[in-house]
Amino acid sequence: MSGPMGVSLRERVATNAATGSLQSAPKRGCPLCSSRCAAEDGPTVNRRRTDGRAMPGRYYEEFDVGETVAHDKRRTVSESDNQRFCDLTMNQQPLHLDAEFAAETRFGERLVNGLYTMSLAVGLSIPETTDGTIVANLSYDDVEHPEPVFHGDTLRAESTVSDKRETSDGERGVVTMHVEAYRVENGADTLVCEFDRTVLAEKRPDE
């Protein structure tokens, strides 16, 4: 999709993020009620937008470099999760989908799509980091998958704030977090995915 003068939407977003001129999206409440559904999300940190809606995400000022956040939510990955993700992304890799093919590999069974594992790690990290306070995700870097994930594995995530800086106009902030996803096991959990996530975050609104 192109905008004025033939400049694509992607190019405009990248330019605006670099200059700090990217505008926040319109603020919307929950489609089912006037506020966040605390029963689903658990305890909500007492922060509010200028429109009065509570949300658990952090503003730029609330990120501390070096802090590690162990995220509460976990998910057990099902065969259906893996199948639907591959279908939606048109990924026909038999190592993810074909049980007989996968049985003949060194893994002995189907592997969960690594991009699903990464996406799940991002999703698990949202409530305690950028839920309601993000302007945009800017990049995902240095992605690694040190161990495979299988159907039935339960995953958890941690985020460590590695860097932060204000935008050139001082109105927002750029925050980088190192995200790690672990397979939950008896004893020591196993690292299955890690990457750096950089976001453009809102600053705390004036009271």
Score class of each variant (00 low, 15 high):
residue 14 A to R: 08
residue 14 A to P: 03
residue 15 T to G: 14
residue 15 T to A: 15
residue 16 N to L: 13
residue 16 N to C: 11
residue 17 A to L: 15
residue 17 A to F: 07
residue 17 A to E: 07
residue 17 A to Y: 03
residue 19 T to S: 14
residue 20 G to H: 01
residue 21 S to L: 14
residue 21 S to M: 13
residue 22 L to P: 00
residue 23 Q to V: 13
residue 24 S to E: 13
residue 24 S to F: 07
residue 25 A to C: 10
residue 26 P to R: 06
residue 26 P to H: 04
residue 27 K to L: 14
residue 27 K to E: 14
residue 28 R to D: 06
residue 28 R to M: 15
residue 29 G to H: 09
residue 29 G to Y: 08
residue 30 C to Y: 04
residue 31 P to C: 12
residue 32 L to V: 13
residue 32 L to E: 15
residue 33 C to T: 14
residue 34 S to Q: 15
residue 34 S to K: 13
residue 34 S to D: 15
residue 37 C to L: 13
residue 37 C to T: 14
residue 39 A to Q: 10
residue 41 D to T: 12
residue 43 P to M: 02
residue 44 T to S: 10
residue 44 T to W: 02
residue 45 V to Y: 06
residue 45 V to G: 05
residue 46 N to P: 10
residue 50 T to W: 09
residue 50 T to E: 09
residue 52 G to E: 09
residue 52 G to Y: 08
residue 53 R to N: 11
residue 53 R to P: 00
residue 53 R to F: 10
residue 53 R to I: 14
residue 55 M to P: 04
residue 55 M to T: 08
residue 57 G to L: 03
residue 57 G to A: 05
residue 60 Y to E: 05
residue 63 F to L: 06
residue 65 V to D: 07
residue 67 E to R: 10
residue 67 E to F: 13
residue 68 T to E: 09
residue 69 V to S: 05
residue 69 V to F: 09
residue 70 A to M: 08
residue 72 D to W: 13
residue 73 K to G: 02
residue 73 K to N: 06
residue 74 R to H: 05
residue 75 R to W: 11
residue 75 R to P: 01
residue 75 R to A: 04
residue 75 R to F: 06
residue 76 T to N: 06
residue 80 S to R: 12
residue 81 D to L: 11
residue 81 D to A: 11
residue 81 D to V: 11
residue 82 N to S: 08
residue 83 Q to E: 10
residue 85 F to G: 07
residue 85 F to W: 04
residue 85 F to C: 09
residue 89 T to L: 07
residue 90 M to P: 00
residue 91 N to A: 05
residue 91 N to T: 07
residue 91 N to R: 03
residue 92 Q to E: 05
residue 94 P to T: 00
residue 95 L to Q: 02
residue 96 H to W: 02
residue 96 H to L: 06
residue 97 L to Q: 01
residue 100 E to T: 11
residue 101 F to Q: 01
residue 104 E to Q: 14
residue 105 T to I: 07
residue 105 T to A: 08
residue 105 T to V: 09
residue 108 G to H: 03
residue 109 E to T: 13
residue 110 R to H: 04
residue 113 N to Y: 00
residue 113 N to M: 04
residue 113 N to D: 11
